[in-house]
């Protein structure tokens, strides 16, 4: 998949996140975004997801411009799957209903089709036994797996994951990372924001550093970690690999 950002500017209130960001990248399976806190990773992901509009500039995904009107943006969002750090699921709906909701209301599947499709995805992530539970009755790892199932069930063109494991303890993190690693080879391109440096190195085709309102480095995973070209990357890696 191909992403190209041209002269993207984005600020919140008075705070400028990107002044004029240019970034072109092409990858097959997984692009990992890493970088210091507050560097703009989530902002970049939200721009790609069509959840935020840039103040200026244009974003193309596989050559198609992300529209800037609300209904065009909605159409864009319907074509992709997004998973945030936490609270993805709707607490008043069961796991099954959470997956069915977009299938029925957005993608207009019949109740029967939606039900069987949702169950198929729950089964795939070993969650069928938990279909009738509400999010509060699920573990953190199960919740994130349901969220991933919901994102995948609509057959998106690609997946955007924003630190899907950072609110989890190590064991649950492993369980969710296993799922993501398995997705990698199977189907949709994934753009993943992560603090799990080891996982990024292991799974990603490309790793990009988002820092100081720019993307100073983007290279294949082994290169990124073994021979970082940029001083910012070296400083970042030193800091995160210190312990």
């Amino acid at each position: 998949m191909k992403i190209s950002l041209r002269r993207i500017a984005k600020s919140y209130g008075g705070q400028c996140v990107f002044r004029s960001l240019d970034f072109n990248v092409e990858f097959e399976h997984t692009l990992a975004l890493v970088g210091p806190s507050g560097g703009g990773k989530s902002t970049l992901l939200r721009l790609l997801a069509g959840l935020e509009l840039p103040d200026s500039g244009e974003i193309r995904i596989d050559g198609d411009l992300i529209p800037s009107d609300e209904s065009g943006l909605r159409a864009h969002r319907q074509k992709l799957g997004v998973v945030f750090q936490a609270y993805n699921l709707f607490p008043h709906l069961t796991a099954l209903q959470n997956i069915r909701l977009p299938l029925e209301q957005v993608h207009r599947l019949s109740a029967q089709e939606a039900d069987s499709r949702a169950k198929q995805f729950l089964a795939r992530f070993q969650l069928l036994n938990h279909a009738g539970k509400q999010p509060a009755q699920l573990s953190g790892g199960q919740r994130q797996r349901v969220a991933i199932a919901r994102a995948l069930a609509v057959d998106p063109t690609f997946l955007l994951l924003d630190e899907p494991t950072s609110a989890l303890d190590p064991e649950m993190t492993a369980e969710v990372l296993d799922v993501i690693a398995e997705l990698r080879t199977s189907e949709k391109p994934i753009i993943l924001v992560t603090h799990e440096i080891g996982f990024a190195r292991h799974t990603a085709d490309l790793v990009a550093l988002v820092a100081d309102g720019g993307i100073p480095e983007c290279s294949p995973a082994t290169e990124f970690f073994d021979q970082p070209q940029h001083a910012t990357t070296r400083r970042f890696l030193q800091r995160v690999l210190k312990y």
Partner: peptide, 23 residues
Amino acid sequence: VGRSQWDSARAIGLTPTQTYRFV
């Protein structure tokens, strides 16, 4: 109702009316 709920609803492509109704 937290911001993350509105975000999730938008992310799955619900319209504002649907967001109020279902979420």
